[in-house]
Amino acid sequence: MKYKSSTIKSKWTKTQWLLKDSYIKKYIPITLPFNKKNLSSMLADHTTVFFKPTNGSGGNNIIRISKTAGGYQTQLNTTKRSYSTTTQLYRDLNRFAGTRPYLLQKGIRLAKSNGKPFDVRVMVQKTKQGTWTSTALFTKVGNPKKVATNYNQGGTIGTFHNTMNGAKFSSAFTPQLESDLKRLGVAVGKNFDRNYKGFKELGLDVAIDSKGKAWILEVNTRPQIYPLKALKDKSIYKKILSYGKQYGRYK
């Protein structure tokens, strides 16, 4: 059986869908299409801004822009560059983007687990009855030297509770966050269904900031799960596949 679940590449399209929902809207960091005016206003309001390809995946080609005493610093993978003016910065980013559309997103200061930044993947899948359920939560623990936490950017996969145990939140916070994120996953599934047909699974990338607030960084319509095979406990992987078989996901 062939994989049957709709895919939408454009992060901007997906962001606009989510912003239409008052419950979900609170979880969306400010996101705007890349142009000179938006770059200036984002940098006026935020100390860190991410420059992301609208149709990218895997954490590739994401540039972090930070304000410094002398202007701005960009980081792509581990390469850093400095700029004294927004004009210079815009020119370089525009050249890097070429003809590809890019987005600007407010930077979230990720909570850390044992000193390493992490975000949470919420896996949401349809049951045979066609209702959404949040089937799994796991974490992507980043390499502190890199911009993205993705597995193919040198990050590691962790279990939700282990990672949260390494973060400095109260013990009551973790179960509360878990139920909030599961509810959010189902709400996003329903939101996507209102905008387009044929979704069977989604993967929410959720940042937890240092104060414990959750932010949806992105919703993946073709979420990769093969990195879960690296976990000693294969139950999360098996659970996702047990739901996935009905729409042709076998790995």
Rank of each mutant, 00 (worst) to 15 (best):
T99M: 11
R121N: 09
Q105A: 01
R121V: 08
G98R: 09
L137Y: 05
R100Y: 12
G107K: 07
L104Q: 02
F138G: 04
D92V: 12
S113V: 10
L110G: 02
V124E: 07
R121Y: 10
G98F: 07
W132R: 06
M123L: 13
T127I: 07
A136N: 13
P117V: 03
R95M: 12
N114M: 11
T127C: 06
R121S: 09
R100N: 15
D119V: 05
S134N: 08
A97K: 00
R100F: 09
F96G: 00
R121K: 12
F138T: 06
W132Y: 05
T99K: 15
I108R: 00
M123K: 05
V120C: 07
L93T: 01
R91E: 13
N94V: 03
N114C: 09
I108G: 00
G98M: 06
Q125H: 10
L137N: 07
Q125C: 04
Y102L: 06
T127Y: 09
R109C: 10
K126E: 05
T131E: 14
P101F: 13
F118Y: 11
G115K: 09
Q129N: 11
R109M: 11
Y102M: 12
K126M: 10
P101H: 13
V122S: 02
R95N: 12
S134R: 06
F96H: 01
V124R: 02
Q105N: 01
K106Q: 13
L103Y: 04
L103A: 03
G107S: 07
A111P: 04
R121A: 10
T99L: 12
F118C: 03
V120M: 06
T131R: 13
A136E: 13
T131W: 09
K116H: 15
P101K: 15
D92L: 11
R91D: 12
Q129R: 15
V124S: 11
L93I: 01
T127S: 12
V122C: 08
K106N: 01
V124L: 08
A97F: 00
G115N: 10
D119F: 04
F96D: 00
F96M: 00
A97H: 00
L104G: 02
K128T: 15
F118A: 02
D92N: 14
M123G: 06
R100G: 10
V122N: 02
L104S: 03
R100K: 15
Q125I: 07
R109T: 14
K106S: 01
T127L: 08
Q125F: 06
S134D: 09
G107N: 06
P101Q: 14
V124M: 05
F96L: 00
G107H: 06
P117T: 06
T135I: 10
L93F: 03
Y90W: 14
Q129V: 11
G115E: 10
L103T: 01
